[in-house]
């Protein structure tokens, strides 16, 4: 593993190794506190993402390394028209590892083709966001102690939600997984996920528009935000954004050990009253995201 561009670049064994290392980091944080001394992470964020960028930065700082970078295209040479390849080649001279977010799909792939240091895709448009997938997998693994034999529901924007597509792809490699896809018709899962991932791997799945009647079967409920920036038309966004709001009343039908995940930020798709329910795991998920990024960087830097 030289770079991480697509979550499917990782074998099940490599994912397993990263999850195990994350667990070890969680259990022995002091042991890892200076393992990256002298190493620099460059966070190249061509579009804003406070959460992912800070998670990467916190991860590197907790490993004893340091961080350089920019947090919007306006403050980078991209504003002057520099290509992704040239930016990456320049940063390679300053840093040991790159985490990159860019609004265009395939941009991290381009960067990885031009440098010899590891490139981590921290989100390329609506395409891939592999460290979110690792975060989701670690969260499920830590709470359920398995990644097989699970019924996982995905709710909200399943059309544009890249985290949903990536997690479905990743889960499709484990045994006895069932998927429930809950969305309005306008935001249903793309046909390639249905055909090339679910049907191809014989994963049982159900598509429904009804959250309330589906929730009882679920071990994991993955909620997503209906994102304004994915819509070309404001009227469509306003019509659909409130379609699927999770509240305590809907949770009455759910299992006691349901785990509710969300890649965050949330707008209003999970009512704040749910935050205090023990089944709400989305803020724990944030912390797992930092640990899994620590593990990933250690692997890519060949320090573990």
């Amino acid at each position: 593993m030289k770079h991480l561009i697509d979550p499917m670049d990782l074998s099940v064994k490599e994912i397993d190794d990263i999850l195990k290392l994350s667990e070890d980091i969680i259990a022995n944080r002091e042991t890892y506190s200076s393992i990256c001394r002298g190493k620099k992470l460059a966070t190249l964020f061509f579009e804003p993402s406070t959460r992912t960028r800070l998670s990467f930065e916190a991860a590197m700082l907790e490993l004893g390394g340091s961080v350089i970078g920019f947090s919007s295209a306006d403050s980078s040479s991209a504003a002057k028209g520099e290509s992704v390849a040239d930016t990456a080649r320049t940063i390679e001279k300053y840093a040991d590892i790159i985490a990159m977010r860019h609004p265009k799909e395939g941009s991290s792939k381009v960067a990885s083709l031009h440098v010899n240091i590891p490139v981590i895709n921290a989100g390329d448009g609506g395409h891939n966001h592999p460290t979110q997938t690792l975060t989701d997998l670690l969260t499920i693994y830590e709470i359920k102690h398995r990644l097989h034999s699970l019924t996982v529901g995905f709710c909200g924007d399943l059309k544009f939600g890249r985290t949903v597509h990536s997690l479905i792809k990743a889960l499709s490699r484990y045994d006895n997984i069932k998927i429930i896809l809950i969305s309005p018709d306008e935001l249903k899962i793309p046909s390639y996920i249905r055909e090339e991932v679910l049907q191809k791997n014989n994963i049982p799945f159900v598509e429904t528009t009804d959250l309330e009647n589906s929730i009882a079967d679920l071990d994991v409920l993955y909620m997503t935000r209906v994102q304004r920036e994915r819509f070309f038309n404001e009227a469509d966004y306003i019509r659909l954004k409130d379609s699927y709001i999770l509240n305590l009343q809907k949770l009455n039908h759910a299992k006691e050990d349901l785990s509710i995940l969300h890649p965050l930020p949330r707008v209003n798709e999970i009512s704040t009253e749910v935050d205090h329910d023990p089944r709400a795991k989305y803020f724990e998920q944030v912390e797992y995201g930092k640990f899994v990024r620590m593990a990933l960087m250690l692997k890519l830097l060949n320090l573990k």
């Binding site: 290509s83 265009k104 799909e105 390329d124 609506g126 090339e196």
Partner: peptide, 21 residues
């Protein structure tokens, strides 16, 4: 033809397609 693809803004990138199925 994806308007969100990196090739849509970086003209010098070679357009490459791989056989998926």
């Amino acid at each position: 033809k994806n308007p969100r693809c990196i090739t849509s803004i970086e003209q010098e990138l070679e357009h490459i397609f791989t056989l998926a199925d």
